[in-house]
Design a protein around this nucleic acid. Structure first.
Lengths: 195, 195
DNA sequence: TACAACTCGAACACTACTGTTCAACTTACT
DNA sequence: AGTAAGTTGAACAGTAGTGTTCGAGTTGTA
């Protein structure tokens, strides 16, 4: 059986279309978490039937989009130098990945209602762990407060990134200002307050 | 014309049903932002037709639920003593309203896609202003940092409240721990970091 | 050039929701 | 006890989405 063609032996236009569809899916889902398949196909400049030719169901498409956006994020995280001073590292992390994370979390919201909960956690585990490590290291080195659990500090970072992205989308915040505001806030939050 | 019966002269069971429906709507919408009318009616222990007898459309129901949850929040905010030390006031605010705000923001998400954007802002303006005032006062009195805009500090509070509620829903955080974690984090975030 | 791979629109069946109507019933109130 | 007000399920029309099939057209590739 030479069945189940890999992406290698497919025709070039087919491969390109898959890419176009995934791109469109990510942008559409970022705008509207329950965008229809027709909408995504149209945004990709592709017929609806073609889309179904590549992804058997809407859920499969969303999963593929999530996988893609997460692996993009992984690539960025890997390229960063997170060694040395944890506070500097955190700043670098926020600065260079905040847009990416915002995009990812938008797709993640869409996936929340379309994928089995275990599947999401499974896909998201690896990149999340990298951030978690940085925070724990900062705690043991004394750079970050250790009177609050590391999981909560991680959560705080997530929520502020996501929230800032929302504010930008709603016109309450300038794109360019976001990284600085987030960094300032998170670093302060990671330091024990005087009260 | 003695038309347009107010809630005063309606039969008792009708008034009770309206209450039951609004309660059910709030809890259902908190669980799932696009809960169906059938689902809400069932949760209220009421026929679907009855529900439509009280609210002409799904959107009208959501608006009513939003109005109700916001006025509940208003009542709590009004009962609080937010004078004196801003840091203490903020702690009080978070402590005694965090559950309520989480509920409200869940319904708010549902309203986001069902109501015209202006309408939401209009309903939400009054309670939001009260919090905004506290933060601005804290800034001018030197209790909170003023190197970041007040609107952002407000946003931070919102996002952390909402985020914590999400964490509780996902089992990542204990209900009882939340207020303390939020207070500690927000107060630290509102203080200038050392870096 | 020839052929298989791919794309496309139209039409289909299916599901799930919203909102309406109706006729029968139960119940609150005087 | 009588009556208007309120509730109910069933059935309806309308809309919008998903996923499939088909036949005809287009295009990459060898």
């Amino acid at each position: 059986m030479s069945r189940s063609a890999t992406s290698q032996d497919r025709r070039a236009d087919a491969r390109q279309n898959v890419e176009k569809i995934l791109d469109a899916a990510i942008t559409c889902l970022s705008r509207n978490a329950d965008a229809s398949v027709s909408e995504i196909a149209q945004a990709a400049g592709v017929g609806r039937v073609t889309l179904y030719g590549h992804f058997p169901t809407r859920d499969a498409l969303i999963e593929a989009a999530l996988v893609r956006v997460i692996s993009e994020g992984e690539a960025v995280l890997e390229s960063l130098d997170l060694a040395g001073d944890p506070r500097r590292a955190l700043r670098v992390l926020i600065e260079s990945s905040w847009l990416l994370i915002a995009r990812a979390s938008a797709v993640l919201v869409a996936a929340q209602t379309a994928l089995p909960p275990g599947r999401i956690h499974q896909l998201h585990a690896e990149p999340a762990q990298r951030v978690d490590e940085l925070i724990r290291r900062g705690q043991t080195e004394g750079a970050f407060r250790d009177d609050l659990p590391a999981t909560w500090l991680t959560s705080v970072l997530h929520h502020l990134l996501k929230g800032a992205a929302l504010d930008v989308a709603n016109g309450l915040l300038e794109q360019a200002d976001a990284p600085r505001l987030i960094s300032e806030t998170v670093l302060a939050a990671y330091t024990r307050g005087d009260t």
